[in-house]
């Protein structure tokens, strides 16, 4: 029982904890009921759109299911053996890691630079921020079609600019052809895919790092200035250590987006030239859906799972650490 006396009237107000407990008249006043009800949509969503497809993928990967015949007959590890022995799969596996890791290394370097620039005060800052964020807001399929035209074998505006600058054509630095053939030469095609991944994941990483920079206490920066610490000292001894937790989040998001993406490769190169840009997601789609071998497609897709589990565990750990700080 608690009590409070009014200083003006001297009246004493008393109450007990029971006054705030549910009295059973309204179901939603019951916290034991309210919690599960509020959680239910998220649980249904996760079970329906993640759990069921995942269980289905596992069932498919151990069966002989095809698009035409979806009866699930157990074949053990046969699909995994078939898939592993395929050269295209091996290349797709390597490419998936390469695109994810290299693109995120580039992204984190560029995002640090951009975040520092955008945290400074200058005229037109809002417009610059808007432009930096634009790739993130553009639907990925539309954006990649734009890149497809930009990198076109015949009509690429980049090639046109290089020709105007005297850098492309007979007797020039990138000559003698009239076009770079961005999507036709293996190294340039890989570079193109990497560029698009960097272009589309950079804005998110920049925004995350901007938030991290804003959270660094001003007195820490002031103390470093007073002590005469140089830019690089401040960067490596103050900013980077304080930004590492949030930088980890940016990197992990980037890896998940890049590792699981098939849109960029599907639209830009369809895995070519000669499978040089094939990734696990695109190869799973070509095999499982376009060629109708759902069992092999599922087996290929399941190779994404171990890496995604590791990333998820790291993210959970980072989140937990953030809660305890």
């Amino acid at each position: 029982m608690s009590a409070l006396t009014s200083p003006s009237t001297g009246e004493t107000l008393t109450w007990s904890d029971d006054d705030f407990e549910p009295d059973g008249r309204y179901l939603l006043d019951n916290s034991r009921l309210l919690g599960p009800i509020m959680l239910m949509p998220a649980v249904i969503y996760i079970i329906g759109l993640v759990g069921v497809p995942f269980a289905l993928a596992i069932a498919y990967a151990f069966s002989d299911v095809t698009v035409g015949d979806q009866s699930i007959d157990w074949v053990g590890l046969r699909n995994f053996r078939d898939v592993w022995g395929n050269d295209t799969f091996q290349r797709a596996l390597r490419n998936s890691f390469m695109f994810a890791i290299v693109s995120q290394v580039i992204v984190i370097i560029l995002a640090n630079m951009l975040a520092m620039v955008l945290s400074a005060n200058f005229h037109g800052k809002r417009i610059v921020r808007f432009l930096v964020l634009l790739p993130w807001t553009t639907p990925i399929a539309l954006a990649v079609i734009g890149w497809l035209w930009t990198l076109d074998n015949v009509y690429s505006p980049i090639d046109a600019a290089l020709r105007e600058l005297g850098l492309l054509g007979p007797g020039t630095m990138f000559g003698p052809g009239k076009n770079m053939l961005w999507l036709a030469k293996p190294d340039l095609a890989q570079l193109s895919v990497l560029t698009v991944h960097v272009w589309r994941t950079l804005p998110l990483a920049t925004v995350i790092l901007l938030a991290g920079l804003a959270a660094i206490p001003q007195d820490v920066k002031d103390a470093a200035d007073v002590d005469g610490a140089s830019f690089w000292r401040q960067f490596f001894y103050i900013r980077v250590p304080l930004l590492i937790p949030i930088m980890t989040v940016a990197i992990l998001y980037g890896i998940v987006f890049t590792f699981t993406d098939m849109t960029v490769v599907y639209i830009l190169t369809r895995g070519g030239p000669i499978d040089n840009t094939q990734v696990l997601a695109s190869w799973a789609f070509f095999t499982g859906v376009e060629a109708s071998n759902l069992a092999h497609g599922a087996a290929i897709a399941l190779f994404l799972f171990p890496l995604l589990v590791v990333v998820a565990l790291i993210m959970l750990r980072v989140a937990k650490r953030a809660e305890t700080v």
Binding site: V67, G68, Q70, F285, S292
Partner: peptide
């Protein structure tokens, strides 16, 4: 891909047309 999705869903169009043989869908 569209035919594959419709066969998996068990519903969709009554007639589907492609420009090359899709014999692998025979059972469905």
């Amino acid at each position: 891909a569209t035919i594959a999705a419709e066969l998996s869903a068990g519903e969709g169009h009554d007639l589907v047309e492609h420009i090359s043989s899709l014999a692998q869908y025979e059972t469905s």
